[in-house]
Each structure stands twice: as structure tokens, then as C-alpha cells.
Design a protein around this nucleic acid. Sequence first.
RNA 1: GCUCGAGUGGUGGAAUUGGUAGACACGUCAGACUUAAAAUCUGAUGAACAUUAGUUCGUGCGGGUUCAAGUCCCGCCUCGAGUACCA
Length: 926
Amino acid sequence: MEYNFRSIEDKWRKHWAEQKTFKAETTSTKPKYYVLDMFPYPSGAGLHVGHPLGYIASDIYARYKRLKGYNVLHPMGYDSFGLPAEQYAIQTGQHPAITTSENISRYRDQLDKIGFSFDWDREVQTSEPNYYKWTQWIFKQIFNAWYCKVEDKAKSIDSLVARFKAQGNATVKAVSDEVAIFTAEQWNAKSAKEQEEILLSYRLAFRSETMVNWCSELGTVLANDEIKEGLSERGGHPVIQKKMMQWSMRITAYAQRLIDDLNTLDWTEAIKEQQRNWIGRSEGASIRFELESDALATDENIEIEVFTTRPDTIFGVSYMTLAPENEYVSRITTNEYKEAIREYIDKTKKRSERDRMSDVKTVSGQFTGAYVKHPFTGAKIPVWIGDYVLASYGTGAVMAVPAHDSRDFAFANKFDLPIIPVISGGNLPEESHDGKEGILLNSDFLNGLKVKEATTAIIPKIEDKGIGRGKIQYRLRDAIFSRQRYWGEPFPIYFEDGMPKTMGDKDLPVTLPKVEKYLPTEDGEPPLARAEHWKTADGNAIETNTMPGWAGSSWYFLRYMDATNDGEFVSKEAQSYWRNVDLYIGGSEHATGHLLYSRFWMKFLFDMGFVSEQEPFKKMINQGMILGRSNFAYRIKDTNTFVSYGLKDQHDTTPIHVDVNMVENDVLDVEAFKGWRADFTNADFILEEGEYKCGAEVEKMSKSKFNVVSPDSIVEKYGADTLRMYEMFLGPLEQFKPWNTNGISGVNNFLRKLWRLFHDAENNFVISDAEPTKEELKTLHRTIKKVQEDVEAFSFNTSVSTFMVCVNELTTQKCNKRSVLEPLVILMCSYAPHISEELWELLGHKDGVTYQDFPKFEASHLVESSHTYPVSFNGKMRFKMEFPLDMNKTEIEKQILAHEKSIHYLDGKSPKKVIIVPKKIINIVV
RNA sequence: GCUCGAGUGGUGGAAUUGGUAGACACGUCAGACUUAAAAUCUGAUGAACAUUAGUUCGUGCGGGUUCAAGUCCCGCCUCGAGUACCA
């Protein structure tokens, strides 16, 4: 037997684990490099071949960096709180911790087989109390903080209390809920409870009645990023809007910094753009309109505030629209319209969020009977309600400019409201002119200005009049932070006199209590309410909500730096050495969830002085998903006869998913198929050329489509080194691609060929100490250069090709020279570590290949004295001719034109021009 | 609708600043070895025409710039991802 991957891979796996080869030290004279994978949720299905794609890429990079002399931190862990384990607990009664630990050990087995260079001493599991103790601790810090707009950073709540005591809140510029102004005396006179209540309006983690996305099927609220197209991301259940008492995080305080600092990150433009859109900054003005309504008492004064990005169009306002949920609606509606308004609101409530979203074309609305006064013209402007206005954005009210906004335009047309053009151009009255090109008209003092000039001119006028101001509005909402679930971090919070209070640090972690059932209680309380004695020593009730999935994952990258520290979430020394993640690899689907929350927490911890960097992940690469490639067999209708793919059109057939593990190169293993399901045992087959050929289609990998391929089966058949190289060989890392094993034998062949370079026909290790030839050195150094460039550019597929070319050339050269093969083994060890370690040892080294020096590229070996030029006529390559590099252009031109083939292609004509690009090409224009 | 990304042989995919399109691999075909098969090795393999020499066409489509375009510019088409009444 020649290349025996099984024994080689077993041997080195064991060796690395025993020697702790990949242990990262926090003290080192080497420069640090932190390579991180997005940690997985350990699901019951285990890993499929798509999961390791990113892990292999990051592992190659981590190993490469070690060869380049870096002290590399490359850890792995598990995001182990989450819904599936809990759903399983609800169905079976098995504690989610048991399910989770079973799944984790399965994952670990699978990961171990692939030969990753993780430092397992730093493993974290977010559901372990010694980890979530620190998630709770960070929550406490956020609870005990407020955001100062003047210093533009988070500060401790004590500093706020001190200012209230001394000056009241008039001078405090904070990101907060709306709070009435009070003086120092008034503050000091308040009861402790009243003071607490006010502080809740300032805290960065706070509790309040808010509109939430409620998913009754899952029995919990969901964050905006956990909803896709109006349905829950997990399970696809309906989601409705509901008002509930919830914990939230004031991420909106960081909106601007989260946008600005994107510029400092080496991420793809696509992800940055997604975050920018999610945060949704828009510049404009907020303007107050004075209300005139018969419904108001004579001494009552109401102003309705709107936000607009087009204050320049203020003279085009012909009506106002409020969201049906807007708090003013009931107060301003006149008696005459009360009934109609009530009917309209009922109707919109019945339309689910999903209907409202999928059906944006139906225009509906209702007049309230109230009017507002135009602040510049004094005109009476009718106030309507309409469900095209969102309650959750801005103030839930818009000034409608139908001439220059297509939604207002549709509404005005339907209800016959006036359309006043204020900007020249466009195609009124056919459609609204939403663009920003044109000159202002019908606009008093703005007439004649361009749109941009008018926008700058109007804001000071609005401010002078005292009716509003320039404003920046964000789409980003504060993040709901509580879930009505069992399998999550308990809050370190208890209630005293109805006010939330934090537990002392010595009481952490607050561990999950035992419950009999994992369902909500009969009166709708979260599962923790089922726990007995869910109270503090003083008998105060403990919070029954748990934290969302993103809590633990928002800071895990910091814990790896100092994973076993009992006294701190991460020590100052460890954090200031490792700082932040240099390279992060994972899917792009976390753009608006995990990646945004982690940036938020990092900035908060930075503001509070706990960490030394503002951003968690400097560079990120998003690997593409590996899709499944399903295979089909074609059963002739109403029979048990299957017809091969090429012949199926001659029959009326039904395609049936067949397990891809029974198919190789689209040829079905008929015997395995017969044994697969009882009803196929007696099946007949119509073959083509003696084989049953399957059809194929690309779909997501899933159990139900029988297209899941586990890495274990590949490792079993070909070895981990083949799997690693094949996954890279499949194509560019970022690209989505279907899994298909059609080419895997090529990679396996390549490794066997590599092995044979070091062995004779009888598999004896034979290596020569002779001087390498010029050609051999050229092959080696071309490989060094290309592989290095490729790894730096994350172009792993092309470096696999480069290795193949190299080994093909060395095989042709019959090269078994130590001075060529040793550097090659080092080059290869980040891609195929097992075989490389084995060859390195056979070469007589005892110290392992992991920490060798990356071979040095020497350009001198690639220097050529001549170049074979492609000779083109009118851009078409016709033949090749070699010229010395030091020959001058005139001489080249003379020789090339004298060539017999040139004479043939010139066909008697004289060349117009001869272009000679040194070391590139010769082109003759005829 | 908007924002990103991608369209290259039978297949996965290569192609520095514009400079030999199809590297590498799979598959297919032919050959060697073998009683036979597997494994291995060698050769051919974008398409069409041509006995050969060779010719023409060819990177989603249509234009353009250039001695030269997969690559740059303009206008489209198709597919994938994200987002969606955000005023």
C-alpha cells in the first residue's frame, strides 16, 4: 500500500492533541494574529460538507501565518443557547443542556477529523454558567450606563445621578426617552422609586412598554433581524405587532458611530452597505404644524411634528397623513368623522403586517375632520390617516407633497386632494416628480433656487420661526433584548418595589433553574416563572425573561483571549495583547444581526474602558454557501420501473430524490438503491449503456432532499487532506456553489502523486541530496511566489492548482531532491497538514512542520534571458517566435518580418505598424 | 422598485496593469499493461468547415474606444442574494 492516509491522519491527529501543538501563548515576542471563525450553533443534524468550508480557509490562513512567524490565536467554540434544543425539550422533556452537550460532542468528533489547528484549551460554550456569568456581568455594565451626546460616549449611571443631584437634567444631553425637565431640588425631593423610574429612561439597557414582534407559535418576541418577509426566520411562523413590557438595548445611541466606523473596516462593500441601509440614516428636518380642530377645547394646543427629507418642498404640502396608530388620532378626530375613523382603524388592524407589506399598491385612508395650519402660507391643510404611513418611523406622521412623492401622489389621486407642483420638470400630472433636479416655483422666497440650494435655505427659516429644526433620522430601532424562553441567559435582575435592580457581582452567575416543563405558564408567563424559589434571599422576584441568542455571541471573541479567567471577562493584559480579530470568516447572513450587535457591544466596552479597540473584526471574508446537488431517478408512472436519465423522455415519469450517497458521477448504484427502501427491492431498471444515469438539480442541502453529504463520509473514503484541498479546489471561497464530488478523485490523485515524488516503485522512501537543476528551482520558486500571493488574496482554489502544476512538473523532471521537496512540504502543510507532517518526519525532522519558516522566494531563479513571443496579425495570434530579451526592437522587427510565416500572412502587403511589447506580445497591423 | 454579486467548453473553474481565452481538475474518447476487470500510465478533447496545410466562429446580448477587449466605456437581457410604503 502506498499513500495510507488513514494511518497517517490518525497518527498526526493524536500527536497534535497530545503535544498541544496549536496552543497560543498570550506572552510572546512574535507579532500576534487572531483568526476567527463564526462559531456554530450545534444542531442535532451534525456538520455537513458546507460547514467546514470557512473553517478550512481560516485554518489554512492560520497555519500560513504561523509559518510567517506570527503568534496565532485560532480558537473554536459553540453558540449553544438556542431554539432547537428548547423545542426538543418541549417535545420530549429532555433538558436542553443534555441535548446540547450531545450535539457538541458530535460536532467535536467531526471537527477533529478534519485536522484543524484550533487551540481547544480556549473553547467556549455560551450556555455554560462560567461563560454566561460574564454575559450577565456585561449586561449589568450596560444597565448601569447612559449615553452622553456631548462626549459622544457611554458613561456610568453614577455620573448621571451626580449631575441630577447638582443641576437637574436641563443641561444633560443624553440619548434617552422623553423626560420632563427637572431641577436639582426637584430631583433630590423625589422618592427612590421615582428616581429609579427616571433613570430607566436613560439607561442603555432598559425596560419599557414597547411594540414588539410577537410570534405566538414560538411563544416569544423576535428582533427585526430574526424576521424574514413577515415570518419568523426559524420555523417560518407568523409574527404580529403587540405592545409588551420588554428589555431593550439603546443601540440607537451608537447609530452614527456604527455608520462612520464602517470606513475603517476591511469588509466587503456588500455587507457594509447592508449595515448602512439597516441603520438607515436620512437627513432632513422636523417641522411642527399647529392643529385646528373642532374636537379640541379652546385652550388646547396641539402641534403635530413630522419628519421630512425634503423640507425644500414645504410649499407643496397639500395635506397631512398620520399613521392609524398615531396617538393623536383619537384626540383630533371631529365627531362627524369618529365613526369612519374607527371603522378604518379596525380594518387596518385586521390586515396583518404581511398583507400590508405584500400589498403596497392598494391605497387607503380616511379624513379626520381636523386641519393643520401651513407654517408659511397659513393655509388650512386637511389631516388624514393612512396605513402607508408607518407608526414606527419618525413621528408616525408625514407632510404630504403629492407633486413630488409618488406615495403621496397615489393617495392624493385616490382622494382627490390638490397637487401643487413646486419644482420644475417631471411629468405631472401623469406621475409625481420625485427627483432632485429642477428649479423651485410656487414657493415664495424659495422661487428660482435649485433643489439643493432650497434645502439649505429653508432649514434656517424653519429654525428662525421656531417651528422645527434640521434633523437626522435613523431607521435603526432599539434592540429588544428579552425572550420568553427557557434556554437562554437569565437576567441578573430582581424586582424591588416594582423596580428592576441588579444582582451583586458575587451572586453571578444567576444559573438557570430547574423547571418541570419548558412551556410558558398558563397565564402566559415565561417558563422561568415555573421555577420554584425563583426569588432572591430577601424574597424579591427574579426576572423571568431570558436573553436573546445574540447576547452570548456579541462578545465571545473577547473571551477566547482569556477563556478560563474566573475573575474578569477578559484580563487587561490578554485583551491589550490580542486586541481584536484580525481575520473573521463566516457567512454574510449575519450582516444585520450578530455583526451589528458585536460592534455595538465592543464600542460600549471601549467607552467604559474595558477594551482597547472600538471594532471587533478588522477584516472579514464571507464564504459562500455550499448548496446540495440532488440526484433523481425517474419512475415510469404507475409502475416500479425506473428509466435512466437519457431515456426518460420516451416515458411518462415521476422524478424521485435518490440519496446522493448512492450515486457516483451521476451513475446510480442500483443494488444500494434496491436496498434503500422496501418498495424499491423489486424495482426494474431501464439502463443506458449498462448504467443507470441520474438527473441532477441544485438545491439547498437538506435531509428531506437526500442530498446531504457529511464530511465524515468523505474523510472515511479519501482522507481529511483530500477533503480540505477539494473544498478549496471547488472554486472561489466567496462564491455560492453546489457540492459535487465529481472532481474529488483528481485531488486524491494529486496527493498520491505527491507521495510518489518521495517514494520509489516499492514505496521505499528515497530522497536525493544532489544539487537541484535550474528547471527544478524554477518550478519551486514559481510555486512559492504564486502560493504566497494566492493565500494573501484568499484565492485558495488557484493555489491548489498551482500545487498540482508543481507536482506534475517535478514528476516529469523526476525530481526527488531534498532541497526542492523540503520547501514544498512546508508550502503544502497549511493545505494538507497530515501528509505534510508525515513527509517532514520521513525527511528526518523531529520538530514538526507547523512552526517552520515559510520558504523564501528568490526571483533570481525565474530570470529569463529570452522570451517566446506570440506573433499576431491584426490581433490574431498566428505563430510563436523566441527572441533574446536584450535584443532591440528594430532588430526584432527585422527578423520577424523576414520569417516565412510572416511573408505568408502579409500576403504581399506591407505592414502598417509593428507593435512590440517587451516580454509580452508582438502585433503586426496590416 | 432599490442595493449588491454573477453570466467563459459537456462540468467545476483559470486568465497580474487591456497583451497567446479555456491553466488545473472532472468527464469523454483512444492506446499501453491485464485471461479479464479495477488501479496505474500515455495521448486527444471549445465549435464548425477542410483529406492535409489550414480557415472561420467563439467569454449573456447590442454598440463603442484601442494596434489589441473576458478585462475599459455606453445601452440592455438573464440568474442569485439582501431589502422593501423609512416620508
